[in-house]
C-alpha cells in the first residue's frame, strides 16, 4: 500500500511535466505575436485576442497533466 502511494506521488510529479510543452508553445506563440505587432501595430487588438485564445488552447495539455496529478494525489483510484 505504501509503495503504491509513493509511486503515485512520483507519477503525479511526472504528469505535471506536460507543463514544459505548454510553456514552449506559449512562448513561441507570444514571440510570433510580438513580431506581428512590431510589423503591424494597428492590428494590435485582434492579434492580442488571437494570442490569448491560442495560448489558452496550448495550455490545455498542461491542464490535462495537472488534472491527472490531482487525481493521483487526492482521488487515487489505485488505493481502495
Amino acid at each position: 500500500m505504501d509503495s503504491v502511494l509513493a509511486m503515485s506521488a512520483l507519477a503525479a510529479g511526472i504528469a505535471v511535466l506536460t507543463c514544459a510543452g505548454a510553456g514552449i508553445g506559449q512562448g513561441y506563440a507570444t514571440g510570433k505575436a510580438t513580431e506581428a505587432i512590431a510589423r503591424q501595430p494597428e492590428a494590435r487588438g485582434s492579434i492580442m485576442s488571437t494570442l490569448l485564445i491560442g495560448a489558452a488552447v496550448a495550455e490545455t495539455t498542461a491542464i490535462y497533466g495537472f488534472i491527472i496529478a490531482i487525481l493521483l494525489l487526492f482521488a487515487n483510484p489505485l488505493i481502495k
Partner: peptide, 13 residues
Amino acid sequence: LSLSFRLFGNILG
C-alpha cells in the same frame, strides 16, 4: 471536454 477541463483545471489549480 477540453472546454470544461480548461476552466476547471485553471481555477482548481
